[in-house]
Amino acid sequence: MDFSFLSDPRYNVIGAFWMTVQLTFWSAIGAFILGVILAAMRVCPVPLMRGFAGGVVNIVRNIPLTLIIIMMSQVIANQLGLKLAVREAGVNPQGYLDTQNFRLAVLGFIIYTSTFVCEAIRSGINTVPPGQAEAARAIGLTFTQVLGIVVLPQAIRAVVAPLGSVLIALTKNTTVASAIGVSEAALLMNTLIENEADKFTAVFIVIAAGFIVLTLPTGLIFGSLAKRASVKR
């Protein structure tokens, strides 16, 4: 099998996977924060907030990610004029476009993934024994304190492994960013098999290996983290 394309300066394999890692990293942080907020809203005493968060989660996670990402670029940015990067006059617009598309993609991934983070954390909240919240209320803590100091820390520790699955899925989902021209692994593979059609098996093996290298350690790390973090009862 011919792997000569790996040393071809036209194809930056490492750069493409670095882009995948960057997309995953920023989306993961954003999705975790938004997911916790959504989960908190889903269990809070105010019915309107509960309904709102529930509605958002059920709507967003039933839309294909592809549609969300393409809408971010074609509808939200191009038609409604959302700008996430500064365009400087006289400079090659490619840099602006790259930054803009990268940030739009990250925003799309955050919105989509946060619904799954929310569901994972909510199922974690259900594993915390009711006695914990009852005891917290009995010593006079308010709802935000009960949730923030007592319940959420235990809930998140219980769902480390599912959050790991969400992270792995997010890593794989970043390939959808190729739909709006972010130069990550899937777009590189597309270019590669267009130019080097005869080597498509070698190309597939390289790209597949890249994703296994990214996802396998994530699974193992989160597996051992989950064991260490689990609350002994």
């Binding site: 996670r61 619904t115 983070v117 569901e119 994972a120 199922s123 599912p162 969400v166 899925a169 989902n173």
Partner: peptide, 15 residues
């Protein structure tokens, strides 16, 4: 399958 699993997602390595 774990609550969030209606997805490409969790299905990945779901609990």
């Amino acid at each position: 399958i774990e609550a969030g699993a209606q997805t490409d997602l969790m299905a990945a390595r779901q609990e």
